[in-house]
Each structure stands twice: as C-alpha cells, then as structure tokens.
Design a protein around this nucleic acid. Structure first.
Lengths: 93, 93
DNA sequence: AATATAGGCAAGCCACAGCTTGCATGTCAA
DNA sequence: TTGACATGCAAGCTGTGGCTTGCCTATATT
C-alpha cells in the first residue's frame, strides 16, 4: 500500500502510466522510444526498467514475458485507494 | 501539480491528512500531540511544520494564523487531478 | 516587566531514490 | 552456429528529501 504512493511520486513513472493508458501492452524498448519522442524523457533503458519494477510492485503495471520481449499493461485499480481515503469535495467528509 | 504527488508520497504527511479529515482546524501543537498519540509518529515539531509546508504548497492544507496559533484545514480538491488523470477500472479508459 | 507558550528560520546530517555503467543472459534470424 | 536483438543483474555515484539542532520572534499570561 505504501508502494502505491511512492510509485506515482516520480514524474517519469507517471509518464509511463500515461503512455500505457494511451497504448497498452507495450514492450520495454517500445516504451523507451515513445517516452523519449513524445514525453522528452532521456533516461536509459535500465532506468525505465527500474521504474517499471516499482510500478509493478505497486500493482499499477502488469507484466507478461513473451519470447525475448516483455510486455506491460496498465492497471488503475490500486488508484482507487487514494480516492477512497480522503474526500475530494471542499466540504470535507 | 508536481507538488501534489510529492506531498502524498510521505507516510507522515498522509497521516497528517488523515488527522485533519478526522478533526479539522487543528493547530500545530495539537497536531503534533495527536500524531504522536494516535499515529505513533515521534517526529519533532519542526519536522511536522515542514511537512505542513509541503502539504500547503500542494494545496492540500490551508492555513490561517490567529494570534500565536496557526490553524490548519484539509482541502481534498487537488486530489481530483489524480482520479481524473488515469482510469481506475480494470477495462482501461 | 518577566516568564511561558506557540511557532519560525537556517544550517547541517544521513539515508535512499534515481540514474548510469559494465557485463551477463536469453532469444531470434541468417 | 554465429551474430544481432531485447532484456536482466549488480555495483557505484550523486542529488535530495526528511529530520534534527540551535537559536530567534511574537503573542499571551501573571
């Protein structure tokens, strides 16, 4: 549960989530390319891989290995915990 | 906008938000006491004060100075940005 | 006026997150 | 089978986030 908040605390990881929402099931290399082109992220492949591990341990990304590729899918269900924890209207609970 | 995710990344700050939701308008000293008693947080007053600054810059806490006291109120409105950014159901967008 | 209370400011310390680098592994094509 | 491709593993560096410490300011109490 603590991993969830840490996962979305990093801007690169948030961009990864954005990318996966826009196009689900990308491989690591595909993700690196799109993050560089469309999001201006110049991190190395290893950096992105480490980010994906964090996202996976938070349950926000699901992974499936297929041959020499590793595909990633977005899962927004853990984010519900945030919306359910605190009220979002101005009048409080 | 970046401050929001950083603000809720820390467990002490999340506890502060929990406390303010439960009892709004607490002063700094009151908050320190309750955090120690009910949440098992042994941080110093300065540490809590610094956390409150982060929460305030994220718009999650509003402050009003009154005499020698400083009162704090919870505001969950910025959290909506999270719910609106990514889908929370399993089928994606 | 003197003391106590509630809080502010600033410098310093330390663990860790994010990133890189180098090399190793496994998979597919020719 | 050889080489290119996609990824994994592990050690090291560095900035910074969270915390403490020490001292200062301001408001309230007696």
């Amino acid at each position: 549960m603590d991993d969830l908040y840490r996962a979305i605390a990093d801007p690169t990881r948030r961009a990864i989530l954005d990318e996966l929402v826009e196009r689900d099931g990308q491989s690591l290399y595909e993700l690196c390319g799109r993050l560089t082109m469309k999001h201006g992220i110049g991190s190395s492949r290893q950096a992105i891989s480490q980010h994906l591990e964090v996202l996976e341990s938070a349950g926000l990304v699901e992974v499936r290995r297929e041959g020499r590729y590793k595909f990633h899918w977005f899962n927004g269900q853990p984010l519900r915990a945030i919306a359910e924890r605190w009220p979002t209207d101005r009048n409080g609970a």
